[in-house]
Design a protein around this nucleic acid. Structure first.
Lengths: 420, 420
DNA sequence: GATCGGATTGCATAGCTATGCAAAACAAGA
DNA sequence: TCTTGTTTTGCATAGCTATGCAATCCGATC
C-alpha cells in the first residue's frame, strides 16, 4: 500500500511521465466528454453539467465574438522562445544562499519567521544575482494583484492631469499599482475594462465624466470595487467622491448677486457631464434664492474646451447680448471666454464683466487670465477616494456603495475683483 | 514496471498526498542544507553552491535592506480569506461547456486549432458564467506580461500630459498595458523601478527629462528594454526618441536673425534637462552661424515652469535690459515671459519683442499668448518609440540601443508675426 | 543531563492557463 | 470496407511563490 504500489495507480509519478507513454495499453485511454483534470478537480459538482448544457446554445454577447479579447498583441508573441530567457528565481537565490526556497520567500516578507542571519545570507545572494521578488505567482495564490485599473479621459484638461498625478502618488503610497487605461469614448470603455480584468485588477478608479446608465452597468458587472470622481454613476459596486458642485454653484450665484449682476450667464459643459449639470443646477437655484427670476439666466452650451468657451461668447456677441457676469463650468472654457470677451467684444475683466471658473487649473493663475475659480481640493478628494477604496477592498467580495462630498473652495482672483 | 510499481517510488501520486504523510518512516526525512525541491530542480548545478557561498558575506545595497520591497501594501493583505472569493476559471467554463480546460483556452486564442462548434459552446458557457481570460498564469508560462512600465514626471506640463495620452493609446493599440509610475525625483525612481519589476514588466518607457549617469545605470540594470523620450541617457538597454532639439534651436536662431534681433535672449530650462541643453546649444550655434558674436546672447535660467519664466523676465527688467527677441526652452516659461513683458515692462508681442517657445502646448494657441512654438510631432515620436520597443522586444534578451530623431515643426503664430 | 517552549527551517502544495504530444474523430479516396 | 491524411480533442505539465504543517534547532530551566 505504499504510495502507488498497485498497478492501476497510474499515472503514478510525475517524473516518470517520459516513460509512461509506452507503458500501458493505449486503447484503455478512452475519450471522455470532459477533461480528466477538470473532472477530478470538480468531481463534487459534476451533476451540474447537464443543467449547464442547457445554457450552451444561448446567444453570445458581441463582445465575446470580437473585440478586445481577440485583438490580442500585435507585437511578437512567440512565447516559447521568450521563455528561455528565464529571470532569476527564488530557487536560484536559495541555491546560492544554501537555504530553501521558502527561506528566500520569507526573507522578503517583513513579518515572516526568519532569523536575521538567514535573511542576511539570502539578501546577499539575491543582491549578487540581481533577484527581484516576483509578484505574479503571488497574485495567483492570493487572488489579489494589488493593481488598480485607472480609467481616464481628457488628459488635455490640466485638471485631470494633476488629478491623475496625485491619484497615482496616493495609490502607490497605499501599495497599489496603477494600470492605466485611457479611453476616448464610452465605446472603448468595454474593451478597456475587459483588458484590465484579464490582469485581475483589484479595483477600478475612474474620473470619467460620462454618466450614462450603460457605463454604470458595465462597471457594476465587474464585481470589483469601483471608485469614481465627480460622477453620478450609481450601482452595487460603485462608490463616488464628488466635489460639492451644487453648493459651489450656489456660492457662485451669491457672488454674482453681490456684484449686482442682473443677467448672469451660465456657460455649461457637455450634457453628459454630471458635475457640470450639478454646478449649473446649483447656480440656478442660488440665483433663485437671490431673488433673480429664472428668465434672467442666459445659458450657453460648451464642451469643456477652450475653443468652445471662445465660440460661446462669440455667438453671444452675434446675438447682441453684452454679459456682465459669467459662471463657467470649467476653467478652460472660462479662459476661452475671457479671450473672446476681449477680442470680440472689447470687454475686460473685471471692469466690464466678472467671470468665475471651476477646477482652479494652473492656467487660471496665469496673469493673462487671473481667473477666480473653485478649487476642488484634489488632495482631499484623493484621500477620500483612498478611504473608500480601502473600505471596499476590505469588504472582500461584498459590493459597497458609498459617497463622499468634498467642498470646493472659491479662489478669488482678479476676474471678480471689486471695482469701484 | 508499470508506473510507480516499486515501493521506493514515493512521492508517488499527488492525489495520495493526504495519505502519504503517515506512510513512511519520518525519521528518514533528514534535514538538508538546501530544499529538496530546489536540489531536484537544479541538481545539475549543485557544485556551484560552494562558489556562491563565498559571495554570501558581501555587503547589501541599502535598497535591499529597506525601502520599496519592504514597504509592502498598507492596505489589507489577509490573502487567505481573499482567496475564498474565487473568480470564474477556465475549468468552471470547461465543466459547463462539457469540454476540457484546454478547449476553453483554445476558444480564446484566435489562431488555435478548435472547431467553431466547440468554440461557440465554450463562449456561450463563458458568457453565462461571466468568465474573463486570466492573463496572470500566462505571464508565468511565457515570461512576458505584456505590461510596460511608463515612468513619468511633471504632468503639470500639458505637453507631458498629452504625450502620455498618446503613448497610452499607442501602447494599447500594440496590445501592451500601461503600468504607470509617477516619480517626483530621481530618488524615488529606484524604488519605483523595483516595484515595476516585481510585476515582471516587459519594458520601460519614460519621458523623464533627468539625464544623470545614475539614472542611466539604474535603467540599464533592469535588463529589459527601455525607451526614453528626449533624454540623453545612454546604456546597453536604452533606446531613445529625441526631438531634433539642436536643429530646432538653430532654426529659432535664424528666425531671430531674420527679424533683426541683435541681442537675443535664451530662456533655459533646468540644467539637468538634456533637451533644454540641446536647444540652447543649437540656438547658440545658429546665432554664431548668423554672424552674431557669442557675447550678444543673454542667458536666463528657468526651471520649465510658468513662474520661472515670469521671474526671469522680471529679473531682466531689474537689470535694465530691454529684450527684442526671446527663445524659451518650453512654452510654459514663454507664457510666463509674455505676461511679465506686458505687466512689468509694458512690452507687447510681436510689436516690441518676438518670442518663441517649444512643445506647442494647447495654451500656446490660446489667444492671450498666440505663441509661436516648435511642435515636437508627438504622434510621430510615439510611433517611432513603438517601433523601437517592438524591435527591442523581438530581440529577446539582447540589449539594444537605437536612437531616432524626429524633426520639430515651427508653428508660427502672432508672437513672431512680421510687423511693418 | 533531561525537559520544554519558542524560534527557525524545510517540505509539499495550491493557484490557473497555454501548449506539446498523442489519441481520437473526421474526411476523402480507393 | 479499408487506408490515409487532416482536424480536433484531451492529457499532463510547466511556470514561481507564499504558506500550513511538521520537524528541527536553540536556549533556558530544572
Amino acid at each position: 500500500m505504499v504510495g502507488g504500489g498497485t498497478g492501476k495507480a497510474w499515472p503514478a509519478d510525475d517524473r516518470l511521465a517520459g516513460l509512461r507513454s509506452g507503458m500501458y495499453d493505449r486503447t484503455r485511454r478512452a475519450r471522455r466528454p470532459c477533461g480528466a483534470i477538470a473532472m477530478r478537480a470538480l468531481a463534487h459538482r459534476t451533476t451540474d453539467i447537464i443543467r449547464y448544457r442547457a445554457l450552451a446554445g444561448m446567444d453570445l454577447p458581441p463582445a465575446w465574438c470580437q473585440g478586445a479579447v481577440w485583438d490580442r498583441p500585435v507585437m511578437n508573441h512567440d512565447m516559447r522562445e521568450q521563455a528561455t530567457i528565464r529571470a532569476v528565481t527564488s530557487i536560484d537565490v536559495a541555491r546560492l544562499a544554501g537555504v530553501s526556497q521558502s527561506a528566500v520567500s520569507r526573507a522578503f516578507s517583513p513579518d515572516a519567521s526568519i532569523s536575521s542571519r538567514t535573511r542576511q545570507k539570502v539578501l546577499a545572494a539575491a543582491a549578487s544575482l540581481g533577484y527581484r521578488p516576483n509578484r505574479i505567482p503571488a497574485i495567483m495564490l492570493s487572488g489579489r494583484s494589488y493593481m488598480v485599473g485607472v480609467v481616464i479621459g481628457g488628459l488635455e484638461n490640466p485638471f485631470y492631469a494633476t488629478a491623475l498625478e496625485r491619484l497615482a502618488t496616493a495609490l502607490r503610497e497605499n501599495g497599489l499599482q496603477v494600470l492605466l487605461m485611457h479611453v476616448h469614448d464610452a465605446l472603448t470603455l468595454d474593451s478597456a475594462l475587459d483588458q484590465l480584468l484579464s490582469y485581475r485588477i483589484d479595483a477600478v478608479v475612474t474620473s470619467l465624466a460620462i454618466g450614462s446608465k450603460t457605463v454604470a452597468r458595465a462597471l457594476s458587472q465587474l464585481h470589483i470595487p469601483v471608485v469614481c470622481f465627480n460622477s453620478s454613476l450609481v450601482g452595487p459596486w460603485i462608490s463616488t467622491v464628488n466635489s460639492n458642485n451644487h453648493g459651489a454653484g450656489a456660492v457662485a450665484a451669491r457672488r454674482m448677486a453681490a456684484h449686482g449682476v442682473a443677467r448672469p450667464v451660465w456657460l455649461a459643459g457637455p450634457a453628459k457631464n454630471a458635475a457640470s449639470r450639478a454646478r449649473g443646477e446649483g447656480f440656478r437655484q442660488g440665483l433663485r434664492e437671490a431673488g433673480l427670476p429664472a428668465t434672467a439666466l442666459t445659458r450657453l452650451q460648451g464642451d469643456d474646451t477652450y475653443d468652445s468657451g471662445y465660440e460661446a461668447i462669440t455667438t453671444l456677441h452675434r446675438q447682441g447680448i453684452r454679459p456682465h457676469g459669467i459662471f463657467s463650468s470649467n476653467d478652460m472654457m472660462a479662459c476661452g471666454a475671457i479671450d473672446a470677451l476681449r477680442e470680440r467684444m472689447g470687454l475686460r475683466c473685471p471692469h466690464d464683466v466678472i467671470i468665475m471658473g471651476y477646477d482652479n487649473i494652473p492656467q487660471a493663475a496665469w496673469r493673462s487670465y487671473d481667473l477666480t475659480s473653485f478649487d476642488q481640493h484634489t488632495d482631499l478628494m484623493v484621500t477620500r477616494a483612498m478611504e473608500l477604496l480601502d473600505e471596499a477592498l476590505l469588504a472582500k467580495g461584498t459590493p459597497l456603495s458609498r459617497t463622499h462630498v468634498v467642498d470646493a473652495q472659491l479662489i478669488e482672483r482678479g476676474s471678480t475683483a471689486i471695482t469701484d
